[in-house]
Design a protein around this nucleic acid. Structure first.
Lengths: 304, 304
DNA sequence: CGCTTCGTGAAAGTAAGTTTCACCCGTGGC
DNA sequence: GCCACGGGTGAAACTTACTTTCACGAAGCG
């Protein structure tokens, strides 16, 4: 291969569990069975012997070992230890709301709210935990020094892309977002060395976004991918990979959790860029805030 | 072999480490050497193999095993696991990132990430806590029975409005979002009894949104406001008020926390509406998911 | 349609953990 | 002073757990 020096992975800080669930789709079927067991109850897995776990996952010990290697461990004992540590750290399984669980059919609205909020908050926290500050730093640097920044995203990720564009624009960086593939491709073709292209795709498999990012890369721009899955196709065309950590809970939420996670990452990058030149960013922000002032009506009422 | 129960095994409250140091004096010399190693650095001990630890304690594996039994464990593996868990627990909460605090000027990216994520997650959680399920229920009911749903929002809140529109559309509800005030006003003028108008404004003072919502109300539509401030002007023109709970941390972040909170509320409403007619919503979602399938490329890669 | 490549488990091999047992050494009785 | 006696100990035998190798079969490629 020898193509992408790629900056990412190998990091896996924050949560081992989170890390594993991100890798899940890139694992083979048998390994996925193991992964699911581990993720669903890390503490229990830590207690099991390798033969035990293999049996429970309906596979062989060999596969369990392969799984260990796939997620970056040396072997089973190391996984066990890490799992135990991980499980201990999260002593607080709040209650019945299953992480990543679906909403039960009979649920009332209060339950729905609690479940959604819990999962959303969790996605944000876990994303932050596993974000690699070093990679972020590099991306921030690239953006700060970029002549131009193109941001791509389709569907739901398009909102995030658009949000990012606006943020950067507000602090005086030249950033673009294109809701349309053709326009985006055209723009990507005009990028060059020193420019930055950012592709956002939750699944990492959105062909439109990948195509455009690839185009940008060919032209010499630094490419950044923001996705939930560290081994998805989009990472092949990215110099820098940033991952979110939303355990998508079936189709139910229209992927809101992943959206929040993406926004959090975007916000981190934004603040990082802004922090590089506080004075200038502050001034720009104040100016833009002032601009919309005339569209605000009188302050909040006192009393009832 | 049932000799002396030595000490009240099985219980070992508080911490395993504490427990061990408690019965340290009751151990034989060689076992004490082991115990001291373990107590002084549990995490390191957890990483060692039994032979390793034995060597380090200048004793034999047999003694290590005896030590394990003495402190109430079944064997060495169990001790290792418990040790790892124990060590993980003691590291504990990273620091005191101030809620709602601003980013200190000298902060490095890791700090920035932690602070942002903390505040973002907090906003989501607190929003859920203070959301009134009864009001939500009414709004859900209104949306479910609406002939048409108009959603208004400007600037950052516009993204949320747009997101909501798309969500509702995906489950077959007739919903609109207008980025432009004039179009929105026109649309509002066409609303009537049985329709729903939703205005989103973080500050609750965005005159454009208020104006449009007011228009909708005079035409007989049910009006909903989503804002962070329960006493802001927008609430005057709303039949139902839903609030977020983002403590805005200065203007710094371009209000991402409030955005996340808004999205969470929107998601709750969405799921609430979808839950009212699971079958229909599910079918619609599956159809839309299928529609974009051809824009996805092959699955995630295996291996490294 | 043959060729590869990849996922897989059976079996062989190695390392880790556990048990057994004989030894040492201090103690106390004869 | 000599001889049981018993706890503490480690060497070695043993068992179990973990790891590697290998060959088979299925899925993709030319």
């Amino acid at each position: 291969m020898a193509k992408s020096p790629k900056i990412s992975a190998s990091h896996e800080p924050g949560g081992l569990i989170v890390h594993i669930s991100g890798l899940l789709p890139s694992l083979s079927p048998a390994e996925q069975r193991v992964a699911r067991l581990v993720v669903s109850d890390p503490a229990a897995a830590a207690r099991r012997t390798i033969t035990d776990l293999a049996t429970a996952a309906e596979t062989s010990e060999a596969t369990v070992i392969r799984f260990c290697r796939s997620v970056g461990m040396d072997g089973y004992p190391q996984l066990r230890i890490r799992l135990a540590a991980e499980a201990a750290r999260r002593i607080e399984p709040p209650d019945a709301r299953v992480v990543g669980g679906d909403i039960p059919p009979g649920a009332d609205l209060a339950q729905i709210i609690a479940t959604i909020a819990f999962n959303d908050a969790r996605a944000v926290e876990e994303t932050a935990e596993q974000l690699d500050p070093a990679v972020c730093e590099q991306v921030v640097e690239a953006i700060s020094g970029a002549g131009r920044i193109d941001i791509y995203g389709a569907g739901a990720s398009g909102f995030v892309a658009s949000d990012f564009q606006q943020k950067l624009h507000r602090i005086g960086r030249i950033a673009f977002y294109f809701p349309d593939v053709h326009t985006a491709l055209t723009s990507a073709a005009l990028l060059g060395r020193g420019d930055v292209a950012i592709g956002i795709s939750h699944t990492g498999t959105t062909s439109d976004v990948i195509e455009v990012l690839e185009q940008a890369r060919t032209r010499g721009a630094a490419t950044v991918a923001l996705t939930n899955f560290p081994r998805s196709p989009i990472t092949d065309v990215a110099d820098f990979v940033l991952t979110t950590a939303a355990r998508e809970t079936t189709y139910r939420s229209g992927a809101t959790a992943s959206r929040l996670a993406q926004l959090t990452v975007v916000d981190c990058l934004f603040v990082g860029v802004a922090a590089r030149n506080r004075a200038r960013a502050r001034k720009a922000l104040e100016a833009t805030a002032e601009a919309v002032q005339s569209h605000r009506v009188g302050a909040n009422r006192r009393r009832a």
